[in-house]
């Protein structure tokens, strides 16, 4: 077995035996079910409101506009998922990235590995592989639950093109959570203090989710966690234009929500992405940079620090 495979396999087994990691993973899956329910409940309610309203409009002789539910893509009922991925999904990835390193540190096995013929870059590759597989697993579960929801719901008709978008959305979600997982992995490797990885990556995640959208488009924090309100147009001024250009590329949650809304078909008309870089390029760049952070963290990892033998 290749050394990086050995590291990844051991790390995956370790993660599956950690109660805290499993709890957060289960929480994410539970919220995927909640999201499916919310999609169903909201769709049914809006449908019922539409029926009521169209009866009223017809009775007063006014034209009846088309039903907003049937107008958009059937995938739009999954829109809450983009919020849960950016909240719990990202948090699960942060926790996983942190534990992948901290498990070795608390077990005191870093010196044992460092005193073996193992290149540091191989260690990093094994850990990144484990992170990738762990986050892919939870995203896959989310995809399966969502696919079943779409198949089961009677009013929804999903075409072949929709399924392509569906796959694209989950691939994108995986890439998005990986960004935070990789930052956490790099921070946990670089800093040996307990919970340093968790806290460091959480600060980045908080800034990306709640502060940057306020700067680029005056999106308040609670609007940032509503899939529809998060897509507000920035106030039309030179100042916000400049702020958007400057901070837009850093505002990853907005890039993710923009592409998600586009793929799931609930992007309001006329909304432009923030910043000068297209959102997909922005996310791919972020993935590359966070991979670099993880690698740099692992290369700078000091096996003598932080363990029981420190």
């Amino acid at each position: 077995m290749r050394q990086s495979r050995t590291i990844a396999a051991q790390a995956m087994t370790g993660l599956m035996r950690e109660r805290t990691v499993m709890l957060v993973a289960v929480m994410f899956v539970a919220l995927v079910f909640v999201s499916a329910y919310l999609g169903w409940a909201a769709t049914t309610t809006v449908n019922a409101i539409y029926a009521d309203a169209s009866a009223y409009l017809a009775s007063v002789g006014q034209p009846v506009p088309p039903n907003p539910v049937t107008e958009g893509s059937p995938l739009a009922i999954l829109r809450n998922l983009s919020v849960y991925v950016s909240l719990i999904g990202a948090f699960a990835a942060v926790l996983t990235g942190t534990r992948l390193i901290e498990a070795d540190r608390t077990a005191g096995t870093l010196p044992l590995m460092a005193a073996r013929p193992l290149e540091r870059v191989t260690y990093a590759r094994g850990k990144v592989e484990a992170l990738g597989r762990a986050t892919a697993a939870i995203i896959l579960v989310a995809a399966i639950v969502s696919a079943l929801t779409l198949v089961v719901m009677p009013q929804v008709r999903v075409g072949a093109a929709d399924w392509v978008h569906f796959v694209g959305f989950f691939a994108l979600s995986w890439a998005y959570v990986m960004v935070f997982g990789l930052v956490a992995l790099g921070a946990a490797a670089r800093f040996s203090a307990p919970a340093a990885g968790l806290l460091g990556a959480t600060v980045v995640w908080l800034a990306v989710t709640f502060v940057l959208p306020a700067i680029t488009g005056n999106v308040t924090p609670t609007a940032a966690i509503n899939p529809v309100s998060a897509l507000a147009a920035a106030p039309d001024t030179a100042a916000f234009q400049l702020l958007g250009d400057l901070f837009g590329p850093l505002s990853l949650s907005e890039s993710y929500k923009f592409i998600s809304a586009d793929l799931l078909g609930y992007l309001p008309d006329g909304i432009q992405p923030r910043g000068l870089i297209p959102p997909l390029v922005d996310l791919l760049l972020a993935l590359g940079i966070s991979g670099g952070i993880a690698l740099a963290g692992c290369l700078a990892l000091d096996p003598n620090q932080g363990g029981p033998d420190a």
Partner: peptide, 19 residues
């Protein structure tokens, strides 16, 4: 090559508790 030739036991060895 050094690493391939040595064995090391630190003072406080813990190993992976869950394994």
């Amino acid at each position: 090559a050094v690493r391939a030739s040595i064995g090391y036991l630190p003072e406080n060895v813990r190993l992976y508790d869950n394994f």
